[in-house]
Design a protein around this nucleic acid. Structure first.
Lengths: 215, 215
DNA sequence: TAGATTGTTAATCGATTAACAATC
DNA sequence: TAGATTGTTAATCGATTAACAATC
């Protein structure tokens, strides 16, 4: 049993490799870690280590079988076993995520969305119903929801998070620009747009201060 | 001149601190790093180091002046000097980002969006015009655009990236689930939804395999 | 056999945390 | 003075990269 203890940084790159392999599988049957590294501008040892965490079936001189590698990546990422998911906060961002059909390929299945705005109750976005937020607990328990997506305004994020944790959810995907407090054993993945922008804007200002770039 | 060389991990937390300070500034005038750490479940030394990178005006026993700290954070994050931005790919996600009014607070100003679908040309989303993608280069050069947001399908992402880089853009916010290759001096920040989901789903499966949680 | 490629062990680097001295 | 708090220096931890041995 390899399987376990894949480093988080590795896990982040696996879906990228998988997508690439799918795009070339009809053209070539074997590929080397070096070639994949080349494609994405990564270090070749890093790619080899990443693949080693899920595969171990690479062969010197020939590399990896593309179809075998695809199967191993899909297995490791758990695509195929859909994770039952709900979304809380059907504003612009929430609706966009509901409409995004790509999630089905990534191993999650959004069962329903919740909002506190009565005007939205009973409507559908991307084929998913928007329900009153007071029904949150009942639905989560009833349908054995595993993953919660938070797209509410920042001032309600912690409260929604607490309610999700209380009904057994152990993984939260947070789009509100704050750090959520959760008990041990619950994982939060932050998609903090403000943080990302801060990094990019800082880079731009430092660049124009002189330094590296001669523009 | 302190200012420079703020670690990326620190930079990611600064917008979170800033938002929190704004929410309490009417209630209290001073706050300690310890109290902020408590609020977000972080290590107090970490918060002190983060604040030290932009402030240095904390005083033993009293902590930091809230208003002073807010000013220093806004200065460091460059809020106030808007970064001219364009968005490429006005699908569901692209439109959601265009409609999101919060960006104005984060120091960027989206000037226009581009798409290759003629049906969208000339329409407005969130008050921003959607233009033909062939006009990309002209607008970028003309308006001196600094930052590009990529929300096109993954198979076009690298090509759009290359075009943006070619017309002088040095910071790219990438929502396509791939790793973009860029020359030295150009920064890419990935908002890879597939990667985030991979981490969360993996956590859920490991949890239910037994291990830590006794459910 | 020679060379491409894998996979492992060791070195480096950056971020977090712990220990401690300085200060109001 | 005593205690809360800051800020710095050292230790730890995880991720990346370099060096190298193994193999087809």
């Amino acid at each position: 049993m390899k399987e376990k203890n894949i480093p988080i940084s590795t896990l982040r790159r696996l879906p990228v490799y998988l997508h690439y392999l799918n795009s070339i599988k009809d053209k070539i049957s074997n590929i080397s870690a070096t070639a994949i590294a080349e494609e994405f501008g990564l270090n070749d040892v890093q790619v080899r280590k990443d693949l080693g965490a899920v595969s171990g079936s690479g062969r010197p001189k020939t590399g990896y079988s593309v179809t075998e590698l695809i199967a191993q990546l899909e297995e490791a990422l758990g695509y195929g076993t859909k994770t039952k998911t709900i979304l809380v906060g059907a504003g612009n961002l929430g609706k966009a995520l509901l409409s995004y059909s790509g999630f089905a390929d990534y191993g999650i299945d959004i069962i329903a969305a919740f909002d506190n705005n009565p005007a939205l109750w009973g409507t559908f976005v991307g084929g998913k119903p928007i329900l009153p937020d007071i029904d949150l607990e009942a639905v989560c328990r009833d349908k054995k929801i595993m993953l919660g997506i938070i797209t509410v305004p920042v001032e309600h994020a912690q409260e929604i998070c607490d309610r999700l944790v209380a009904c057994g959810i152990r993984a939260i995907w947070n789009f509100a620009p704050t750090i959520l407090r959760v008990p041990e054993g619950v994982m939060v993945e932050n998609e903090n747009l403000a943080s990302s922008l801060a990094i990019l804007c800082k880079h731009l200002r430092e660049g124009s201060n002189g330094e590296d770039y001669l523009e």
